[in-house]
């Protein structure tokens, strides 16, 4: 449900708006704070790198932005919607329409060809088989893998697999791309290619990207870098 304030933020170009977001996990009888009082705006079309040491809460923040988890307190508004108030079922539908995920280890389905992997998110839409094929071809073309459509993940290099994963994230045209260490499993040259592709998507397709990384060189490709430490946003 969009509140008047969130509509205002949405209209002003803010895609992601976090207000006093905290997240705690229960470990036995103890409550462990992972994120504390996070306030953050990310504008539409921004490319944000999220850095910080292990255990600082980067992935938890990314999970909250992607609707994979819900905050313990605070308001989480994305594209004008209070997703912190969504039920699990609503979050599932919202993810399918609004978020593309890119993982460190690509997470492709090994039994499906590149094009069938990219098609997966479209199975949740009402598109016809012909329309799905057209979208898949366009996405693979965008990542430069049109000639690898019929290849299985095991027949692709790491960089190519990550390109397929990016195509899968893009194919349903989401508002937000969330990347968890997207170059963590790649050599430097391939990592640079992937980062260049992400920059291209940000600049030419106006995709809003939030990328978790340990690598300062990867963060250099972003427009902004945020640092998290012990669950708190410390500087930009």
């Amino acid at each position: 449900m969009a509140s008047p304030a969130s509509v205002h933020e949405f209209a002003s170009g803010v895609l992601v708006n976090l207000k006093h977001i905290s997240k705690t996990y229960k470990k036995g009888k103890e409550l462990v704070p992972v994120l504390t009082d996070i306030n953050l705006d990310i504008k539409r079309g921004d490319f944000v790198a999220l850095m910080g040491p292990s255990g600082s809460g980067k992935t938890t923040l990314l999970n909250l932005l992607g609707g994979l988890d819900s905050p313990s307190s605070g308001e989480l508004i994305i594209a004008g919607q209070r997703i912190d108030q969504f039920s699990s079922g609503q979050l599932t539908k919202w993810r399918a329409q609004n978020v593309g995920f890119i993982f460190q280890f690509y997470n492709l389905m090994p039994v499906l060809t590149a094009e069938k992997n990219v098609e997966l998110p479209l199975l949740l839409t009402n598109l016809t088989s012909k329309e799905r094929k057209a979208h898949v071809a366009a996405a693979l073309d965008l990542v430069g893998l049109a000639n690898r459509a019929k290849h299985y993940p095991s027949e692709l290099s790491g960089g190519q697999e990550q390109r397929v994963a990016i195509a899968r994230a893009l194919v349903s045209d989401p508002n937000l791309l969330l990347c968890d260490e997207p170059t963590g499993d790649l050599d430097r040259a391939t990592a640079d290619e992937i980062l260049a592709l992400m920059q291209e998507l940000n600049q030419e397709q106006q995709k809003t990207i939030v990328m978790v990384t340990h690598d300062p060189r990867a963060a250099d490709h972003a427009r902004h870098t945020l640092h998290l430490d012990k669950g708190k946003l410390i500087q930009e």
Binding site: G66, G89, T92, R95, A96, F101, N107, L120, L124
Partner: peptide, 14 residues
Amino acid sequence: IPEFAILKTLGFSD
């Protein structure tokens, strides 16, 4: 299990 988790991440319902 990780593959099913990815499907859910992509928006496949429970």
